[in-house]
Design a protein around this nucleic acid. Structure first.
Lengths: 156, 156
DNA sequence: GGTCTCGATGCAACATTGTTGCAGGCTCAC
DNA sequence: GTGAGCCTGCAACAATGTTGCATCGAGACC
């Protein structure tokens, strides 16, 4: 169930939905040469099997008062699993943290953060980094230009 | 036009659409205590004024054969504007690069990359980094766990 | 080759959802 | 007051999503 293979129709449909999921199924049908009903059934299957994880609106952070984007790398003191999991859970729960990755290499976590003001970021560092005994250090990079954002993936 | 202020209705609607933009407008109306027609008009305005930038399906990269996510930091040789712009354009055009940020600090660009194999990544480094005379160095971190992804922004 | 099953399809009817015209209400400026 | 502007809800309507049904094609098995 989780591993049905995707044919070229599925991939064509996904490519369209990834750009604009308000495209009518009839229109998708024309583009990929299927009936709207067939498109509908495929989309449902793709959703049920988890290929499509969510259907969402993408918002402009600046228009919501969050003009500042930051990229933060965190290094932890200990790789002990319970401590790591605790930190991971705290990071995942913070709404200002848009994305969070656990990585190999010099640092342990990489975050993408959006805030309205640097004061807000400072508060966040106190709340999430300084207050977390297992956070050894963190390095902040300020985003000057969001050249490319989103979640688009090549469907090949 | 670009700076109409968002009231609590707008923000409530955005919060819903950001989670699931297939929610029927009638249902949104119930949740925020407006008629479906009012919801419809607000959504249209939010789209036209650019608060809502896109409506997209989010896909599972692993199910599309891209199990590997990498975070790459690039340092450039020269900050000359024409050279920077050329690099920026090349990075933005690469489909494997899901996200690209121009940042202050030790490095100049931060990328989020998805690939199927490390061989594919190696090919990408040759094509985009080694072949670009202005890329001084790059540092790669391999993502072990995508703890939190997406484009969600607090609407407050 | 025959034939059976399975999965997918298109069509057409139907259900749900999105859209718009209209009348009315609220707020603000004068 | 009163008029303009903006927003609302309602109800009709248009567009879109959904499903039952008959059919088709591919593969398994005899």
């Amino acid at each position: 169930m989780a591993n049905s293979t995707l044919d070229r129709f599925d991939r064509a449909i996904l490519a369209i939905l990834q750009e604009d999921n308000t495209t009518p199924q009839r229109r998708i049908g024309e583009l990929v040469h299927l009936s709207a009903a067939a498109v509908q059934r495929r989309i449902r299957r793709l959703e049920q099997t988890g290929v499509i994880q969510a259907n969402v609106a993408q918002l402009d952070p600046a228009r919501l008062g969050r003009a500042i984007t930051l990229i933060v790398e965190i290094s932890v003191e200990s790789e002990r699993l319970d401590l790591l999991d605790a930190t991971r859970a705290r990071l995942a729960a913070a709404p200002e943290i848009q994305q969070c990755y656990y990585v190999t290499g010099e640092s342990d976590f990489v975050l993408i953060v959006t805030v309205a003001t640097m004061a807000e970021y400072q508060a966040l560092t106190r709340r999430l980094f300084f207050a977390d005994g297992n956070v050894k250090s963190f390095r902040t990079q300020v985003v000057m230009d969001r050249i490319k954002t989103g979640t688009r993936i090549p469907v090949d």
